[in-house]
Design a binder for these strands. Structure first.
Length: 312
DNA sequence: AAGACGAAAGTGGTTGA
DNA sequence: TCAACAACTTTCGTCTT
């Protein structure tokens, strides 16, 4: 594999701009540099040598293969209009010199081509626009976007969009893609940035996973911790302490059946207290999107069952 | 006055008949 | 399809700092 060759490329010491930590993980599968402490994604799309995809069946091999252009799942959107912007100055109204005639010809050609896009591709491109909008407002790495685009494409192909809005399918694809990449967002977060209710997104998500046969494990509370902590600007000790607490909790079977978000919130609450930088339950509740009551219930359980020296 | 606490009733989703 | 159920939320009064 060409993976061997990639390694030396990022050997320099890199510091996290957020928390100054030098503990940076290189995640090749996601092409990201991620700060171990605060979870900040420092560089996305780090390396792009060779295929970063794997094909598990012939269908994927076909949709993912790069014939011509480099891989880009936002295919039908593929810059038909942006490419035409060209480096000419005619945007200022100057007439196009004769020597640029070939370019004008190209423009016309593309325009002709753009017009023959069929209905299903048009709807795909609508969906991709939506995917892009949502994922940039959530700051999702490219890997997640592409995964979402794949899901969206499959949904289209299976005619799952019929009777549902483009938007809700896009949101559900993103939600699923986030979970598949272990960068879970809550349904509330998705609901907040769109005008689709959490309920609808959830329902569509379940529908998608069923129809596309996706096997998605329940999310781990740990996956939420770095993001919540960095949202509250907590320092790395708190983050790692929270994760430690959750590890212990999972050893003691306190995880299953509980909402992962509430658990993450409770663990963070506890570690802020333990680290002497206490946050109010309300603050954490707000960031995590659960109620204070839930935080209380969870952290009571944790205190009771794990012997953590914990007192207010 | 703000934060934490906990009881009680209500909500939405899952499960199993 | 329906009822039972567990987790979580909302609301609110009380206690603590």
């Amino acid at each position: 594999m060409s993976k061997k060759r990639k390694k030396p490329v990022v050997e320099q010491i890199i510091k996290c701009p957020e928390c100054n930590s030098t503990q940076i993980s290189k995640d090749y599968s996601r092409a990201e540099l991620v700060c171990d402490e605060c979870g900040l994604v420092i560089v996305e799309n780090l390396i792009d040598h060779g295929p970063e995809w794997r094909a598990f069946d012939s269908e994927q091999r076909r949709t993912r293969s790069r014939v011509g252009a480099p891989v880009n799942y936002m295919l039908s959107d593929k810059g038909l209009s942006t490419n035409l912007g060209w480096r000419n100055k005619d945007a200022y109204g100057k007439s196009i010199p004769t020597k640029n005639r070939p370019q004008v010809y190209r423009l016309r050609k593309w325009q002709r081509r753009a017009r023959v896009i069929n209905a299903s591709e048009r709807s795909l491109s609508l969906g991709f626009t939506e995917l892009n909008k949502v994922s940039s407002s959530l700051g999702l790495p490219r890997s997640v976007r592409e995964r979402a685009a794949v899901l969206y494409r499959q949904a289209t192909k299976k005619n799952l969009i019929r009777g549902r809005s483009v938007q809700v399918i896009a949101l559900a694809s993103i939600y699923a893609a986030c979970r598949l990449n272990n960068l879970p967002r809550t349904l509330d977060e998705l609901g907040d940035i769109s005008d689709v209710s959490r309920k609808d997104i959830g329902r569509t998500y379940r529908f998608l996973t069923r129809e596309l046969d996706l096997k998605i494990m329940p999310t781990s509370p740990v996956d939420y911790v770095p993001r919540f902590c960095s949202k509250m600007k907590l320092d790395q000790d708190v983050t790692s302490k929270s994760i430690e607490i959750l590890k212990e909790a999972s050893d003691n079977e306190l995880i299953s059946g509980r909402g992962p978000v509430g658990l993450a919130a409770a663990a963070i609450y506890m570690s802020t207290v333990l680290n002497g930088c206490r946050k109010t339950q309300r603050d954490i509740a707000e960031v995590a999107g659960v109620t204070e009551v839930t935080i209380r219930n969870r952290y009571k359980e944790l205190v009771k069952n794990l012997d953590i020296p914990f007192s207010l």
